[in-house]
């Protein structure tokens, strides 16, 4: 057991956009089944960190590992393309703006990955998609187009789409930030259900209460570094760093 590598490991991650360094050497290790919430002000680098885990951003320095395989391997051209496509199949990503494919129905959105990338027979993919849609409470929407869904419904379909690839880890990039407040809970409920099933998750969020309820560990980032990390009870009730205290005060009073 102890010989198994962490599910996600980030070592010395550095990333600059032009002259601005947004990640200044981040280390992070996530065990299997662990849920890590990443909080911090806008521009702290938390989304960039999450996006570099599945290489939507390429790091300028440092390493990312998924289950013992290096994600940002020093390969080039087609070799890297093949490698990263394989790795990404094992990581589900959920975006702030859903990014569902509007020209496909709900079920097509979900079955597309397994059918095309894994060569899963259509009937099997359909059954899988139906099961996932039931799980997120949208079994009645299989043939709807995304444009007919509410934001909360879209995000639940997006989660089902990511789960259809049977990923080892789920990355949530402010999954509820674009939603009307009354739609947030239905998405949070799905995420809590995944947590109960011991899915490994990294959650970038602005919702401190949700982070406190669901996370095993909370990372507070600011200015491209991890300022403080620990169990939610410690971070939220007894933050050690001044920067964390001022951030949380602003959030909890808002």
């Amino acid at each position: 057991m102890s010989l198994r590598p962490p599910m996600v490991e980030v070592r010395g991650a550095r990333k600059s956009f032009g002259a601005v360094e947004v990640l200044k050497g981040i280390d992070l290790s996530v065990e299997r089944g662990q849920i890590v919430a990443i909080i911090g002000p806008s521009g702290s680098g938390k989304s960039t960190l999450l996006r570099s885990i599945n290489h939507l951003e390429s790091l300028n320095g440092g390493e990312v590992w998924l289950d013992g395989v290096q994600v940002n391997q020093p390969l080039h051209g087609q070799a890297f393309e093949r490698h990263i496509n394989k790795v990404r199949q094992q990581m589900g990503m959920v975006f702030q703006h859903f990014n569902l494919f509007p020209h496909l129905t709900v079920i097509e959105n979900i079955t597309m990955g397994p059918v095309i990338l894994k060569g899963m027979p259509k009937a099997e993919a359909r059954a899988l998609a139906l099961a996932l849609l039931s799980k997120v409470g949208l079994a009645d929407k299989i043939d709807a187009y995304p444009s007919r869904l509410s934001g909360g419904q879209k995000q639940r379909v997006a989660i089902a789409r990511a789960l259809a690839m049977q990923p080892k880890v789920m990355l949530f990039d402010e999954a509820t930030s674009a939603l009307d407040p009354e739609l947030v809970d239905e998405v949070n409920a799905v995420m809590k259900q995944l947590a109960a099933e011991h899915m490994t998750m990294l959650i970038v969020t602005h919702e401190m209460r949700f982070a406190g309820e669901v996370a095993d560990r909370v990372l507070f980032m600011d200015g491209g570094v991890v300022v403080e990390e620990g169990p939610p009870a410690d971070i939220f009730r007894a933050p050690q760093k001044e920067r964390t205290r001022t951030f949380l005060k602003k959030y909890l009073s808002a």
Partner: peptide, 10 residues
């Protein structure tokens, strides 16, 4: 990004 994150190539 949605497609690439699932594992689709360019």
């Amino acid at each position: 990004e949605g497609a690439r994150s699932i594992g689709f190539g360019k």
